[in-house]
Amino acid sequence: MMTTSTLPIAVKSAPSRSWQVMDWLVRRPSSFTLLLIVLVCGVVGAINPTFYSVANLFDILRASVVLGLFALGVLVVLAAGGLDVSFAAIAALVMYSLTKAVVQFWPDAPLALILLAGAGGGMLLGALNGLLVHTLSAPSLIVTIGTQYVFRGFLLTFIGTELFMNVPPAMDAFGKATLLTLNTASGGQTQLPAFVLVLAAAAILTWWLLERTLMGRAVFAMGGSLNIAERLGYNLRTVHVFVFAYAGMLAGVAGLMHVAANRLANPFDLSGIELDVIAAVVLGGARITGGRGTVAGTLLGVLLVALINNVLILAGVPSTWQKAVIGAFIVLAGAVFAIRRRG
């Protein structure tokens, strides 16, 4: 319970500081996330000094890749005022069917082509989400809960339920490729996998889209107010389809990264990750009602969730508490942001 018990201090200590610090915190929602990360690191490090090791850092980065790719997609949807919970189902459908198809028909397919097909497949499924959300004009949460079950049900009914280990060699090699190899104190070696670069690339692309393009303006405008965005002349259908297709594309890539990292394709994988991802995005300061959110904040949120998932055991907290802790973090972060907005 160490990590949770430190939280009230973090919340209460804010008003006691000087007004300027408060003001700075208010303007930067992600500062709260940073504070939580520092706190978690401090507490876990104090309990278990082995926490401060390169190997551990690499582990957390490795775990951040799939989570981060999903989170960037959700960030874009959230910024436009929607919510997507079907991304994990898209990722599972794309990764399993694509890996299965490649193994059966073209085992030597080059990696670039597989990635492109994954991104394309995810994009198509995401675009379907966007079209449905737009034409049904129903809350996107409800629509994507529906498509989530359709995608997963389709995968398990028609494509397959058995996991297989013989993933295509190109993906296997990609999963093994390392960026950096370091010797640890205990004499072993620890590696930073190359696929963390995919997350970096996706983060830069998402930042560019949101901050430097007209589509990014349209996304935030729509998240701020649907009616005003429409009156400003933005084509709502285009924006809807774009944000969900973008989230789907990143989900497709994330699914392939999952296969490459684990060197197996399991159709039951990636279920239940939805709430972790939404937690990461919300902890990163994106507003769930839309119109606000940053890539940097989201990456911090991802880091925090990956940290919690990885270090609870080091801090002596049984891993069964993981879900409860992340749930508590969602509620706490939401409460802090809600109070801050009013104050």
């Binding site: 709430l275 993981q322 879900k323 409860a324 992340i326 749930g327 508590a328 969602i330 509620v331 939401g334």
Partner: peptide, 11 residues
């Protein structure tokens, strides 16, 4: 809120 508490209660 209810997404968070859903995870909290399940957890």
């Amino acid at each position: 809120c209810t997404l968070g508490t859903q995870l909290l209660f399940t957890g």
